[in-house]
């Protein structure tokens, strides 16, 4: 399995992560090597094997519907890159 530059660019876009043109070839090669490793899974027939998402066979616990949190806005926003009037600021959302 090998990925080309174009595919890496597509994945990088999905992940919203800059991969510079200079890095693309090296990244494509690394990812291809990892996919080769991963391809060893194909050697086993897994037809009929139930997928395992969790190590424990537990069911989801349910919380009581109670308000337990208080306003900590100032505390939380002290670590924010940009805020104004209690809002988080980000570059304009277009559209």
């Amino acid at each position: 399995m090998s990925l080309d530059r174009l595919e890496v660019e597509k994945i990088a876009h999905l992940a919203r992560m800059q991969v510079s043109g200079a890095e693309l070839d090296a990244v494509a090669e690394d990812l291809s090597d990892i996919l080769d490793l991963v391809a060893q899974m194909d050697a086993v027939d897994t037809a009929g094997v139930a997928p395992m998402a969790h190590p424990l066979h537990m069911a989801q616990r349910l919380r009581e519907d109670k308000v337990t949190e208080t306003d900590q806005r100032d505390h939380f926003q002290a670590i924010a890159p940009a805020t104004e009037n209690g809002l988080y600021l980000v570059p304009k959302v277009i559209g």
Partner: peptide, 24 residues
């Protein structure tokens, strides 16, 4: 732009191994 904030913050904030795993 918003897109620029995402791709550069993540591109510059993460190192190569983290990026590899996110991409895979």
């Amino acid at each position: 732009s918003l897109e620029d904030m995402y791709v550069r913050s993540r591109g510059e904030g993460f190192g190569p191994e983290v990026k590899r795993r996110i991409l895979i």
